[in-house]
Simulated assay, not measured.
Amino acid sequence: MPSETDAQERAWMAFPPERSSLGNTAEDTHEARVSWAEVAHAVSGFEPVTMVVDPADLTAAGKYLSADIELVTAPLDDAWMRDIGPTFVKDDADGLLGGVDWVFNGWGQQDWASWGKDAGIGAAVVRHSGAELVDSPLVNEGGGIQVDGLGTVLVTETVQLDPYRNPGLSKADVEAELASTIGATQVIWLPRGLTRDNKEFGTRGHVDIVAAIPSPGVLLVHSQRDDAHPDFQVTREIISLLAGTRDAQGRSWEIVEVPAPEVLRDAHDWVDYSYINHLVVNGGVIACSFGDRADEGARQILEQAYPGRQVVTVDARPIFARGGGIHCITQQQPAADAPKPGRAREGFSRP
C-alpha cells in the first residue's frame, strides 16, 4: 500500500443516502449532504472526485454537487467510503494497481448499522477503477490502518482483533494477512482508539483518528491536553507506546503531537474531535476545522508536516457528530505507474 502522500489519480466518496445512520430526519440528511459536498468540492480543487450515489438519490445529489464531481450509481447503506471502499495497492514489480476488498460487516456487526449493500461497494470500486481485485477474508476497514508506504502499518487491537469482526484470529493471523494484502512488514499494535469512538456510532477504535504518517519516520499523534477529558490518559499511553516502537526500516519515530481542540464535549458526550483525520491530496491537505481556537495551530502543524502542500480546512463538526471525519468519508486511489491494458471500467451504473 503506497503512502497517502504518493501521487493520486482520484478520490472516492459516497453520497449520504436518504435513510442511514447519518440522520433520521430531513434536516439531518441535509446537514450531512452539505458537509460531504463541502469536502468533495475542496478535494476537487486538487484532483478528480468520483462520488458513488444510491440510484434513489441521484436527483438530490445533483442539487448538492457541482458538475466537476463524477457520479456513479450503486445501492448504499451509508456513506463512509474509507471503510466500505477498497484499499488500493500497487505491484512492486510493475506499479500496476490493485484493490483489496476487505470484508465489511458494519464495524463489527453494530446494532445501529446496516451493511448488506455497503459490503459490495469495495469490489465495485475496484472494478470501476480498472485495478486488479484482491479478495481478503479479513474483516477490516480503511480507517483501521495507517501506512508509511514502506511496510509499516498502524492498527488497533480493538478493531482487527474485535470478536465481532474476526473471532478467533490472533495477532499473527492478522499480521500474515496484512503482509499478503498490503505488503506490511512491520505491524504496530495500539491497544485502543479514542473514547467517543468506542461508544455508539463509533468504530471501536480506528487508528486514523489517532495517528498519521506524513513522511517516513514521522508520526502525527492526537494529543488531548486537558486532564478532564478521558482521552488525556488514552493519548498519553498511546504516545508512550509509540515512542518505544520502530518503523519497518528500524527507525525510531519523530513524534509530533497535535493538540486536540479545546472543546471537550458536545450535546451528547466527550468529543473525539481530531486534526489527525485529514486527507492528503495532490498538492494539498483537506483538514478538519472545528470553529476552535486550536484550529490555526493545527493548520500550522500540518503545513510543516506536509511542506509544499496547501492546507484547506472544512468544518468537520457535522461529520464527527455522525461518527467520523474527513479521512473517514474519502478514499484515495493512487496513480498507477502504467495503465493496465485490456481492463474495461465496470462495476457501477452511470447516471
Rank of each mutant, 00 (worst) to 15 (best):
M81H: 11
V263W: 00
V153T: 14
G205F: 10
D269A: 11
V312N: 01
S66R: 04
T73F: 11
W253C: 02
H229C: 09
I213W: 05
E31K: 06
G283N: 13
I326V: 13
A40F: 02
E9Q: 14
H327V: 06
G324I: 12
L178Q: 02
C328Y: 14
P261C: 06
R345W: 00
Q304I: 05
E9G: 11
S129D: 02
V280G: 02
S20Q: 08
S3D: 01
E47Y: 07
Q300W: 03
T195V: 14
G142S: 05
T185F: 04
W253I: 03
G95Q: 05
L242C: 09
S3W: 04
E254M: 04
H128L: 11
R127P: 08
A172F: 07
H30N: 10
G324M: 10
S170K: 11
H327Y: 12
A67R: 09
E70K: 09
A79N: 02
R127L: 14
D295G: 01
F15R: 03
Y275V: 11
T245E: 08
Q110M: 14
A321K: 08
G62N: 06
L220W: 10
V263P: 00
S114N: 08
A176T: 10
D68Y: 02
G291L: 03
A93F: 12
R19L: 00
D292R: 06
T87C: 14
S44I: 01
V258L: 15
A60F: 05
V210F: 00
L97T: 10
D266C: 04
D197M: 09
G106H: 07
A113P: 03
G85F: 10
G250Y: 04
A248S: 14
A56H: 00
G149M: 02
E262A: 14
E9V: 08
D208R: 08
K199N: 11
W253V: 09
L154R: 04
L241P: 01
A93E: 15
A42W: 10
W36D: 04
F290I: 07
D6K: 06
